[in-house]
Amino acid sequence: MMLVMNGRYEDAGHEEYGHPERPDRAIAALQGVDQLHLESDLRIVNPYAATRAELVRVHEGAYLDELGAFCYAGGGDIDEDTYATYDSWTIAQYAAGSGLAVVRELHEKRDGVGFVVTRPPGHHALRDRAMGFCLLNNIAIAAAELTELGERVLIVDWDVHHGNGTQAIFWDDPNVLYVSTHQSPLFPGSGGAYEVGGSDAIGRTVNLPLPSGATGDVLRQAIDEIAAPTIDEFNPTWVLVSAGFDAHRDDPMADLALTSGDFALLAKTVAGYAPGPGRLAMFLEGGYDLEALRDSVAATLGAVLESPYRPEAPSYGGPGTEIVSNSQVERTAALRIAHEAALREEQQ
């Protein structure tokens, strides 16, 4: 199968000394792709700077103005985690445009799998706020275009941090199903199993929090037991993935215990939800250990493209099976409460 990727754009200008979200990350991800030796099975599409009209589908215009002005004034620290430089506004627009370009290519040709290698990452960015290293929510910008075209979009977010920005943006959108696996407790502190979507989209948010030390088998149990029935019912016409690789056991930002082999299994499962070729795109989010990032990218794409690449073995035996069971109970209770509230509102 063909891999469709965005061409490189100059992202070195978005860097702060000592910050883990750094240009080497994109290089490590590309080294992961190189390990697959795809040659003629790799198609590159031109990145471009997303337009204001494309960005305002997701972000408030006032926020975009402020972010642009802040960068052009020289940038600095936006909050305790997030920085911007003079070049960050342009680079962030290219990141968003890269996602759109890859998704459009897949949509039009109905062929291949997409992998969007961009930085800064996006899934923490809210409509009106930068956060957690993220300036623009790249995956949400692509998903918003797809829903405008009438698509039902499944977003699977396997970054180790909950994608609070993406969840918030589509909280009330019945055409987007957001499924997140993440370590909890951990930044940003959201992502409880009881968060199930707004009144217009009850059940369209599925959170699968995992404890520190959880291994791949626990994550797969959570997907199979809690998310899978909801995904089947939603019947997506498009699948996007917030592919962070910081749940890897070597990553310094968190404490899950996944291996690159777990990402391969996960990718295979998620790819199975795409209704056909050209309907799956993965967006790079976190992943801060460069070797783990490189190998996890190779494992993920290798599994989806059915390449002969052999990743490390999947992980088993970590804690969390009872937390998965509790999440199921919590989610069921939250869904009941949400449906009852909606019914009461309807009757009034």
């Binding site: 909050d79 305790e80 985690d81 706020r129 956060m131 957690g132 609070n164 407790p185 951990l186 930044f187 940003p188 502190g189 959201s190």
Partner: peptide, 12 residues
């Protein structure tokens, strides 16, 4: 002490 950005944590 709570995980999150300052604004979200304060709102919680």
């Amino acid at each position: 002490v709570d995980d999150g950005d300052a604004c979200s944590v304060m709102m919680r």
